[in-house]
Design a protein around this nucleic acid. Structure first.
Length: 488
RNA sequence: GGCGCCAUAGUGCAUCGGUUAGCACGCGGCUCUUUCAAGGCCGAGAGAGGGGUUCAACUCCCCUUGGCGCCGCCA
């Protein structure tokens, strides 16, 4: 193995559906690992049995793979540093926790939850900073024995340094310093024998030879805890990277409350493209130092650098995502787009499970017509509905505007008759015929075109009328015109 | 409340001591056009406030203000 190759991990806890912020962090991990030829690791932090959510891990893996960010080590990938589930590493944590206890850097705490709660109330009432009062930090053998009878399931707390400061250098924050007298003796092993995040992540990061810890800014406050554990165990701390958080439109941390916005899978369902999503997430909170919008995956990998990570929070801008999405949709080859749309049209019942030659070319022609206008894949079915179904309603406003005039019946009649004489049903000939109708009736082309569009599609907007008429076909177009004229 | 982080247009970024402060999204207008998009052109729009340092600060330092985050036997 090449020495000094960066090793980064994404360490989600399976407590819910993947969060957009987690995926963004993973993007940074992934991009840096790929940029440096390092290793991208997936580790599951399932140390909270109460919050475990069935299927959360599967959704996480699905999301990462959908983004094209396959991990090199972890669940379903294997690796030399497993197991990659913290719940399967309990003995390892205990081994190091015991070592810390022996060293005097950790201690068993027999305080009950009730006492802790009481203590917190008192602190709050006295407007004191909340935190454990260290009652169990210096217990004699006898005292421990007595307390053990009251509470046979003690937790293990880490004994934080009381003096001086804990300092660390962060790639995006620079040098950061924390006063030790304000630090709390936090729990490293819970009563159920499971480790807390603070402990498990440090032990695993060390054992898995993680070189760069990239995690949200929300973790910066607890970084001194981690730094002190590294010191106590005589381990070298990784390079710290704390990118800023992604905020919602109101400027708050994206939370479960804004589920529609944070749940990553909903973007997949809506039909965003992985490339657009990757481009968007990567350039939100990171910059290559240039005025540029579009980056392919390869360019992202080539240009990504930790130093380019921004140090201020970014507000999630859906309009910008949509703009990027549009760019990527338009970049697609028609065949690709058609493939992506196909399942959604099947779901809408417009096409069958397997398409024959003619159906395929029809789909391709339809797709070509909507490509410029399509943003989300899930809008496709509605957008192409009238190419597949003759049963459509007329847009109310459009009907009032374009079909309600006294002249409409005569216009439609003239269109029908002229179109019926068109032999070669091509865009050019259709257009000529339509314009001829306008000339014959001495009206503007628009006066012919709008009612015709309404009659043929039921809508006021869409692809070029002549193009769309060509694709729908002469007989269906004429039938629709007749139906419309007959209904007036 | 304590601690920590942050501060360029509405939003995302660029500029990192000397620029008419640049780009993109969004917004407004014009254009193309049968519509809607897309495209092209034009436009409005920013260095939170106050002190320093310096010949020179958006850029460095300090304070204030504001925003966010953390303060769980959750991660």
């Amino acid at each position: 193995m090449t020495p000094d190759k960066p090793r980064l991990r994404m360490a989600p806890s399976p407590t819910g559906s993947p969060h957009i912020g987690n995926i963004r962090t993973a993007v940074f991990d992934y991009l840096y690992a790929r940029h440096t030829g390092g290793t991208f690791i997936l580790r599951i932090e399932d140390t909270d049995r109460n919050r475990f959510v069935e299927g959360a891990l599967e959704e996480m893996m699905y999301a990462l793979r959908w983004m094209g960010m396959q991990w090199d080590e972890g669940p379903e990938a294997g690796g030399d540093f497993g197991p990659y589930f913290q719940s399967q590493r309990l003995d390892i944590y205990h081994q190091y926790a015991d070592r810390l206890v022996e060293q005097g850097r950790a201690y068993r705490c027999y305080c009950t939850r009730e006492r802790l709660e009481e203590m917190r109330k008192v602190q709050e009432a006295a407007k004191l900073p909340p935190g454990y009062d260290r009652r169990c930090r210096n217990l004699s053998k006898e005292e421990s024995g007595t307390l053990a009878q009251e509470n046979p399931n003690p937790v293990i707390r880490f004994a934080m340094n009381r003096d001086g400061t804990t300092e660390l250098d962060d790639v995006v924050r620079g040098h950061v310093s924390f006063r030790n007298d304000l630090q709390d003796d936090f729990i490293i092993i819970k009563a159920d024998g499971f480790p807390t995040y603070h402990f498990a992540s440090v032990v695993d990061d060390h054992l898995m030879k993680i070189t760069h810890v990239v995690r949200g800014d929300e973790w910066l406050s607890s970084a001194p805890k981690h730094v002190q554990i590294y010191e106590a165990l005589g381990w070298q701390a990784p390079v710290w990277v704390h990118p800023s958080l992604i905020l919602d439109e109101s400027g708050k941390k994206l939370s479960k409350r804004s589920e529609a916005q944070t749940r990553f899978l909903s973007y997949i369902e809506d039909g965003y493209l992985p490339e657009a999503m990757l481009n968007f997430l990567a350039t939100m909170g990171w910059s290559a130092g240039e005025d540029r919008k579009l980056y392919s995956r390869e360019e992202l990998i080539e240009k990504f650098a930790l130093e380019g990570i921004t140090n201020h929070p970014a507000i999630f801008d859906l309009a910008k995502l949509n703009d990027l999405q549009g760019e990527y949709i338009r970049m697609l080859a028609v065949e690709q787009l058609a493939d992506m749309i196909q399942p959604r049209l099947q779901q809408a019942g417009y096409i069958g499970d397997s398409l024959a030659g003619d159906d395929i070319s029809y789909l391709l022609r339809v797709t070509a017509l909507i490509q410029d206008r399509l943003v989300l894949l899930n809008e496709a079915a509605d957008m192409v509905s009238y190419f597949y179904s003759d049963e459509f309603e007329y847009d109310e406003k459009g009907a009032r505007k374009h079909l309600a005039k006294d002249t409409t019946p005569a216009i439609l009649k003239a269109v029908i008759s002229k179109l019926s004489d068109v032999n070669s049903w091509t865009v050019g000939d259709i257009e000529s015929a339509m314009r001829a109708v306008a000339d014959d009736l001495a009206v503007k082309a628009a006066d012919i075109i709008h009612p015709t569009r309404m009659a043929v599609t039921g809508r006021t907007w869409g692809p070029g009328l002549f193009e769309l008429m060509e694709v729908i076909g002469k007989s269906r177009v004429v039938a629709r015109l007749e139906r419309c004229a007959g209904g007036l």
